[in-house]
Design a protein around this nucleic acid. Structure first.
Length: 603
RNA sequence: CGGGGUGUAGCUCAGUCUGGUAGAGCACUGCCUUCGGGAGGCAGGGGUCGUAGGUUCAAAUCCUGCCACCCCGACCA
């Protein structure tokens, strides 16, 4: 392994010496290093493996970065590992700089700790459980709240030892129902998880902010486009929470952000505001129209030739007090399940009514349900309450109503925020308009409070000698996922395009026919060595392969810079430079090429 | 977990419907030619056709069970 990667493990010492955020490169002093491709096990393929769905998975397999062992389990090949280690090094450096302290906990955890917090039962099949030879319960850690809280309750006695922020970078296992997308959603994955401990909430808020800033710095350094967004704290618990998303069209999460402020949130969390304009007056009479075979909103708009936003969507769900509750949405809006579940009329967890319950309540099957004459609680999204002359189900199979109006044809419904925010909605903070983007969740920070410390009795004495449960925060980064996310965000038809900071190599030195031409071999070796001496992480493609093969490979594996050395150029005293995103070669004098390259590297 | 699909050479796939000697391309080995954008020729190596049963003179092919993997849904770094 190269010196620069090893240096990442030097941790705090390294950080103290380098207070800036620049990627650091060290000269490679070994003359016979594995950075010669003839001795590096690169195995690329032209064909895309059949079971790879998304670009990052396909390219990682084609480039030989990873190999699958079983569902959701991957070997990191030497090339892939170089990238993983670079991401890891950035995370470690910035965590250390923030004042967090690294430790390493066991991956295997005793079940009894999980029973203390009740998560042995709550976590479900995601938790990989097994027994040791004494028939005692264990699990492979999907996260480490229990272990760290157990550690802290044994080690920390006094408020004087707080605040404390401990982190590790470690392999986790979550027995996902559906592992997919390669390393993006693997069962086994590399995660940085940090846990902070505080006497009071103010201290927690301070560290939380420090972690927010640290995460922003980490993702800036990786060179990826990202966005912190307000998030739901989900199963881990707690109140305040932010997710960090790498922006990519293939992202699994939808996020919204304002063009007029720094407001940004996961769509599942973003509130929508009641419309400012009042409901238009009724202008049409209510009329029943036949709609045979219509079951979906799209079929309805096609059948009656009306816009989606003039249709009312009626969803029946199990009620808290009543068998069913009707949730009413404008046809073009999507139900937000988190919001619906929190509504007092609605039973939690949110459960859609089954066909029998729908028939019982509405007298018809799903697809023809509407609020008119429906004797169940009506809860309408704000946007639905200002509709007029709308189309909805008639509660008779194969029939819909047009020209329906609130107050006149149906009682006024309760108004609530039930839908996903959409592009064009006003920002919830009143400043600007929301835009929509897709994101890949690569980081998540939480203020946990005392949930775990109370359950596990992790207390310290405060300045008055009183015993208090410690307040906790937890902070995760999906290290291996970042690698995949980087590819999703940065690739073209020829392959990956690594940001400098996490590229497996900075520059590829390609000798053209260097096994036949003494001249080319000499020049290539000299340039390669000069780059190493200048501290550049160079890769020498000294394979006995045709130029086309070498170029295609270097592009596939996404090396940011390429220097091609051939007899043709050498006769003129030049070599060729090409950036990974460039479309043309640039002739550079042999003696200038190292400086030429250095000028193109980030400081 | 529910619904759908696929298992044949290291990879991508044909062959299965209609049972009868195991195939192609890429990759790999050797030789020759070629030599600045994934070269060409010749000669090779490599498969108990996922697995266990069943039907049959005969099974990659038909039937049954099991297993693995992939896709679509609800969860997560």
């Amino acid at each position: 392994m190269s010196d620069d990667l090893r240096s990442g493990y030097a941790g705090g010492v390294f950080c103290a010496a380098r207070p800036d955020t620049a990627p650091v490169q060290f000269a490679n002093k070994e003359s016979e290093s594995p950075m010669r491709l003839s001795r590096f096990p690169l195995s690329t393929t032209k064909e895309t493996p059949a079971d790879a769905e998304i670009v990052s998975h396909q390219l990682m397999l084609r480039a030989g970065m990873i190999r699958k062992l079983a569902a959701g389990l991957y070997t990191w090949m030497p090339l892939g590992l170089r990238v993983l280690r670079r991401v890891e090094a950035i995370v470690r450096e910035e965590m250390n700089r923030s004042g967090a302290v690294e430790l390493l906990m066991p991956a295997v955890q005793p079940g009894e700790l999980w029973e203390e917090t009740g998560r042995w039962d709550k976590f479900g099949p995601l938790l990989l459980r097994f027994k040791d030879r004494h028939e005692r319960n264990f699990c492979y850690g999907p996260t480490h709240e229990e272990v760290i809280t157990d550690l802290v309750r044994r080690e920390i006695r006094s408020y004087k030892q707080l605040p404390l922020n401990l982190y590790q970078i470690q392999t986790k296992f979550r027995d996902e129902t559906r592992p997919r997308f390669g390393v993006m959603r693997a069962r086994e994955f590399l995660m940085k998880d940090a846990y902070s401990f505080h006497l009071d909430h103010d201290s927690l808020a301070e560290t939380y902010q420090a972690m927010y800033d640290t995460y922003s710095r980490i993702f800036e350094r990786t060179g990826l486009h990202f966005r912190p967004v307000q998030a739901d704290s989900g199963a881990i618990g707690g109140s305040v929470s932010h997710e960090f998303h790498v922006l990519a069209d293939s992202g699994e999460d939808a996020i919204v952000f304002s063009d007029g402020s720094d407001y940004a949130a996961n769509v599942e969390l973003a509130p929508t505001l009641p419309p400012a304009q009042p409901r238009p007056a009724a202008g049409a009479d209510m009329t029943a129209v036949p709609t045979p075979g219509v079951h979906t909103m799209d079929e309805l708009t096609a059948c009656l030739d009306v816009p989606l936003e003039c249709c009312l969507k009626t969803l029946l769900v199990r009620g808290a007090e009543t068998p069913v509750v009707a949730l009413l949405l404008r046809g073009d809006h999507d139900l937000n399940e988190l919001k619906a579940e929190k509504h007092p009329e609605v039973a939690a967890p949110l459960t859609m009514a089954d066909e029998a319950a729908i028939r019982q309540a509405a007298g018809c099957g799903p697809g023809s349900v509407g609020p008119v004459g429906l004797d169940v609680p009506l809860v309408a999204d704000h946007a639905a309450t200002v509709m007029a002359d709308f189309v909805c189900g008639a509660n008779r199979d194969g029939e819909h109503l047009t020209g329906v109006n609130w107050g006149r044809d149906v009682g006024e419904p309760q108004a609530a925020d039930l839908r996903d925010a959409d592009a064009g909605d006003p920002s919830p903070d009143g400043k600007g308009t929301l835009a929509l983007a897709r994101g890949i969740e690569v980081g998540h920070i939480f203020q946990l409070g005392t949930t775990y410390s109370e359950a596990m009795d992790a207390t310290v004495l405060d300045e008055n000698g009183a015993s208090k449960p410690v307040a906790m925060g937890c902070y995760g980064i999906g290290v291996s996922r970042i690698v995949a996310a980087a590819i999703e965000q940065n690739h073209d038809a020829n392959g990956m395009i690594w940001p400098e900071a996490i590229a497996p190599f900075t520059v590829a030195v390609v000798g053209i026919n260097m096994n036949k031409s003494e001249k080319v071999a000499t020049a290539a070796e000299r340039i390669y060595q000069a780059l190493l001496d200048a501290g550049v992480d160079a890769l020498l493609d000294d394979r006995d392969a045709r130029p086309g093969v070498k170029f295609a490979d270097m592009e596939l594996i996404g090396i940011p810079h390429r220097i091609a050395i051939g007899e043709r150029g050498l006769d003129q005293g030049t070599v060729e430079y090409r950036g990974r995103r460039d479309t043309d070669n640039q002739d550079v004098a042999v003696d200038d090429v190292v400086d030429h390259l250095l000028a193109r590297l980030p400081q």
